[in-house]
Amino acid sequence: MVIEEVRFDFEEFRRYADDFIYNLLKLMIISKMNSTFKDISSRQYFVNLIQQIDCCEAYIVKYGQPILYTKYRGMEFSDQKITSQFVRVNDHTIDVTMESVFEEFIKSFDILASTTASRVNWGIDVRKDSNINPFFELLDSFVHAVQRLTLLDKNNADSLMGKRFSIKNIHITRQSTHLEFLVDGQMNILRLYPSKKKGKVETLFGNSSIAGAIVSLMKQ
């Protein structure tokens, strides 16, 4: 296993630290998105969503059963390719840790995370004047919530400052999406319902105050 930790310091351009975390979270989300291939409605839904992410496509990984994952800017993701986590040390410093069995995957992920040209652009619809897909609205609200919590004082129970944050899995079906994330190794699972008008997000697993704070912010 190859492990690499990179420190990004934006002391001279502090507002860029928020932009970096925002894009990093979106990249982490894309890297863990998957769906079951055999369920036709979920497969079509997943492929349609992936088509709304710039420079992204769906591809099949055959484990015990075929699973759909994402390929972003030429990099194929799956459960076993790469894992990543970050810690916001202070308002301008972010430590990113990447793990993979292949060093080239770490280098590729590092480039995607740190290059301005590789910023994730999702919710794209070729139809003019169309609204962003509710699925991506929920993901945006999740990203903004996490980002806001990284700026809270460390003494606040809801703060993510100084805590290790990672996305473990995002399993997408036609009816709902399970979003699994870790805070200092503690598992939390949210269930997202993009098609609902109300009650679009709920905590499925995890008793941390941080999970509750994220859900609360997403509902605002």
Rank of each mutant, 00 (worst) to 15 (best):
V101Q: 12
T116L: 12
G74L: 05
R73Q: 13
N90K: 04
L112P: 00
A113S: 12
T93W: 04
S78G: 02
K71Q: 12
K81S: 04
K107C: 11
Q80G: 02
I111C: 10
T97A: 14
D79E: 05
E76S: 04
I82T: 00
E99M: 08
F102W: 15
I111A: 06
R73T: 07
E99A: 11
D110P: 01
R88H: 01
V87C: 10
V101M: 12
T115W: 04
E104A: 08
S114D: 00
N90E: 15
I111F: 13
V120H: 07
S84D: 11
F109H: 06
F86K: 03
K71I: 00
K71P: 00
F102Y: 05
V120G: 08
V89G: 12
T83I: 04
A117E: 14
H92L: 04
V89N: 11
K81H: 06
Q80V: 03
T116M: 10
E99Y: 06
F109I: 02
E104K: 09
E103A: 14
V101A: 13
T115S: 09
I94K: 03
I111H: 11
I82K: 02
S118T: 15
F77N: 03
L112S: 06
V96P: 02
E104M: 12
M75R: 11
T93E: 11
F109Y: 04
